[in-house]
Write a protein that binds this DNA or RNA. Structure first.
Lengths: 105, 105
DNA sequence: AACAATATATCATTTTGTGATATATCAAGC
DNA sequence: GCTTGATATATCACAAAATGATATATTGTT
């Protein structure tokens, strides 16, 4: 994350998972599950990214965390950034599909 | 690129641009243009990635290249991979939107 | 008690991306 | 016919991002 401009895929998946309060391990499992194992964010990546997202205030600790489970959730700022990135990604897909459709010469 | 599983954003943008024959500089300009400057792939990233994509046979040199301009275009394999990644990205967006929509508690 | 699953965390390394810079060609204006 | 700016490719050294391996502790099951 150079600052917040665009989210990497890993960051996007994690933030998407944290639209609802979840602890790290659950985020990891959810991504693996929803992508049918296509995209795996292992513990090293996960906790590294979580640390950064907290530092940048895109996610925050949720109340019902205990010592064992640290539950995180998107902040308003995080939600905003995620929405922006969704739009960017829609355009991306649109561009690619447009290119593929026109019979690519 | 660990092997081809998922494309990074930069790789995706470049491959999307190469659904039509284009030389490197044109790819660079196109990305900057279509993303309104949001996403910039500079020469260092561009030529590094092009080299890798050629090595993995996702793109190839197109006939009307001369000494000055090296024109590249997606291979069949590249087109296939791009299509797969488009699908992955659609699911990604769907997941994120679903999360955001349900009032995120 | 033993074991598997859950859960968080970090280190060392690899992979990816980039700023800076170099080099050459071409087109336009003077 | 030369200067300038845009076009075009390329690489080096570095920074950022991601990951494999590993460590540690807790909880639930048998």
């Amino acid at each position: 994350m150079k600052s917040l401009e665009q989210l990497t895929d890993s960051v996007f998946y994690i933030m998407a998972a944290l639209t609802e309060p979840r602890h790290g391990y659950a985020v990891m499992s959810l991504i693996e599950e929803t992508t049918k194992g296509t995209f795996v964010v292992g513990p090293a990546s996960l906790y590294t990214i979580i640390k950064k997202l907290v530092a940048e205030q895109l996610i925050q600790l949720h109340d019902d965390s205990d010592s064992r489970r640290k539950v995180y959730v998107l902040t308003d700022k995080g939600r905003e950034i995620l929405l922006e990135d969704i739009e960017r990604r829609k355009v991306m897909i649109h561009l690619a599909e447009q290119g593929l459709q026109r019979g690519n010469i």
